[in-house]
């Protein structure tokens, strides 16, 4: 759907983006991750043709991205912006028409979304009269009003309460079902794990890693297992001997525990089971994959360490 190829951006001799490439497939949700100042916003502006790259290009459905493609994109910038003195209705009509919808289609879409988000009563209110959360909802509707094929959302969940986060999350999954593609830039890794199919991590303008969420977590796994059992904790520890390292434990009762183990000396899950079976009554064993937050932190730190050396 969207192909970002070898994009670099330099501002005042400073490298903001360095040879960034990735593809956004149809019906995919891609997480665009990175610390503050990594170049995510610049990248999103380049895709939206708000700013030009110094090198590289962006293509849309195989064609070089042109202004005419912009009506297929809905962009929600991180810094939310609406005309404060305009009413919700007029704001939506203006932005809908600006994105190529007729007045009638804009009204139909507007009625649908206001109804769906249960905010029809705000239609005549000026933006300055709304709370921050309400304005965020209006802004989100303005972004999707023209039914774009691609959504580019910078921190789409910020400013929302948990109920509205769930509402937006559901809508995004609904879009995905309809075959629409979404790029989400967020610092909330739980959201990434929950809704993103793939993620791309950028640090200091460079792509640090990219892949499906599962691939990324698998790539960074550390042979940690979570084992729950009933029995004597000392007997369990003695059975492990030196081949495993207990890194955490949860005590549920006097004889019920959950232990987090890191495998050592090349031990596998079968070795672990052989060692403890007969000592305690095992109720469950599972491999613990790192959270996206861990993947994020470790990758960034690793890159920073390499650069500082």
């Amino acid at each position: 759907m969207i192909n970002v190829e070898n994009i670099s951006k330099y501002i005042h001799h400073q490298t903001i983006l360095d040879d960034v490439s990735f593809t956004l497939e149809k019906g995919e949700i891609l997480g665009l991750l990175g610390p503050n100042g990594a170049g995510k916003t610049t990248l999103m502006r380049i895709i939206n043709k708000i700013t030009n790259p110094s090198k590289g290009f962006v293509s849309f459905d195989g064609d070089l991205m042109k202004e005419q493609h912009l009506i297929n994109i809905g962009y929600l910038p991180e810094e939310r912006g609406l005309y404060q003195s305009m009413t919700v209705e007029k704001q939506m009509l203006f932005l809908g028409k600006l994105r190529g919808l007729s007045a009638t289609d804009t009204k139909t879409q507007m009625d649908f979304w206001l109804e769906k988000f249960d905010i029809s009563a705000w239609r005549k209110k000026r933006i300055e009269e709304l709370s921050k959360g309400m304005a965020q909802k209006v802004q989100f509707i303005c972004t999707i009003l023209h039914e774009p094929d691609v959504l580019i959302l910078d921190e789409p969940f910020s400013g929302f309460d948990p109920i509205n986060i769930e509402l937006i999350r559901k809508e995004l999954l609904e879009f995905k079902k309809k075959g629409k593609s979404i790029i989400i830039s967020t610092h909330n890794m739980n959201n990434v794990e929950e809704i993103c199919d793939r993620a791309i991590l950028i640090n200091k303008g460079q792509v640090v890693l990219q892949g499906t969420i599962d691939e990324l977590r698998q790539q960074h796994k550390e042979d940690i297992y979570k084992i729950s059992f009933k029995g004597n904790m000392i007997a369990f520890a003695n059975a492990l001997w030196a081949g495993y390292e207990i890194i955490d434990k949860e005590v549920h009762s006097d004889d019920t525990f959950t232990i987090y183990l890191k495998m050592r000396q090349g031990n596998k899950i079968n070795d672990l089971l052989n060692a403890v079976i007969g000592q305690v009554e095992i109720s469950s064993v599972e491999e613990v994959l790192p959270s996206m937050e861990n993947v994020f932190v470790k990758s960034i730190n690793a890159q920073n360490e390499i650069e500082s050396e």
Binding site: I73, Y75, G81, L82, Y83, L95, L98
Partner: peptide
């Protein structure tokens, strides 16, 4: 004002 309320970025994603 369009700069300070940041709507300029929304507008620039539709017009140059």
């Amino acid at each position: 004002r369009e700069k300070s309320n940041r709507i300029v970025e929304v507008l620039l994603s539709s017009v140059n």
